[in-house]
């Protein structure tokens, strides 16, 4: 267990709901769930969830810190917003799921083989370097996420799609060299750094 994780676990001992309210985006809305389960039934990824959103909300209230944060459930969310549209209590379920995922990541509690988590990291790395998504590089790094051999196979399988994208200018080959960027890259980096600091400070402070 990381120090930060341990510190937070100690700090909020017996009151995981409070930890979620303090540290997770829209975490205060968790308490509004009335366990109807419409989110669970509405999710297109439903069958792949270990715990449904409604169950996760219940687990939070039942103090199941480890089980929630180490779960891969919230990584299943594809942001389709079906659950938010149908939730009778208007809970921002998608946001809460991402919030929980982010928090788990911060505490290094993400399951090692979680592919969505891996992709999310790749996406973030790609985006944060220049402030723009470099689709070519993102595609390549995604293909090769699980090793060279598999990457080549995936690339071959998608060859035709790639060529068509190039043809229709949906993807630019010159992106491979540098690629496009925001105007004020250093300003962008400074902004991200500041945001990270604020977030860190909040959690650090909450852990004391």
């Amino acid at each position: 267990m990381s120090d930060l994780n341990q510190a937070l676990a100690d700090k909020y001992k017996g009151n995981f709901l409070k930890e979620v309210i303090d540290n997770v985006e829209e975490g205060d809305r968790v308490q509004m769930c009335m366990q109807c389960g419409v989110c669970a039934g509405s999710c297109p990824m439903g069958p792949h969830w270990e715990h449904t959103p409604q169950k996760i909300f219940m687990m939070i209230r039942a103090n199941k810190r480890e089980a929630v944060l180490a779960s891969d459930s919230m990584w299943m969310c594809t942001s389709c917003y079906n659950c938010i549209a149908r939730c009778p209590r208007e809970l921002p379920i998608t946001h809460i799921m991402h919030g929980l995922a982010t928090y788990a990541k911060r505490l290094n509690l993400v399951p090692k083989t979680q592919p969505t988590a891996k992709f999310a990291q790749l996406f973030w790395n790609n985006l944060s370097s220049k402030g723009r998504v470099n689709e070519l590089k993102l595609g390549i790094s995604l293909y090769f996420m699980n090793g060279f051999g598999e990457g080549v196979k995936t690339a071959m399988a998608n060859q035709k799609l790639g060529l068509n994208m190039l043809k229709t200018k949906r993807m630019a080959i010159n992106e491979a060299w540098g690629g496009h960027s925001v105007k004020d890259k250093s300003g962008f980096h400074a902004m991200l750094k500041k945001a990270a600091e604020i977030e860190n400070d909040t959690i650090e402070a909450n852990s004391k």
Binding site: C36, G37, V38, A40, G41, S42
Partner: peptide, 18 residues
């Protein structure tokens, strides 16, 4: 709370949910 209904064979409603 039933999430949604689809229609199966013979116009039978199918209830989906958890």
């Amino acid at each position: 709370k039933v999430a949604f209904i689809t229609e199966g064979e013979n116009n039978n409603p199918v209830l989906n949910g958890v």
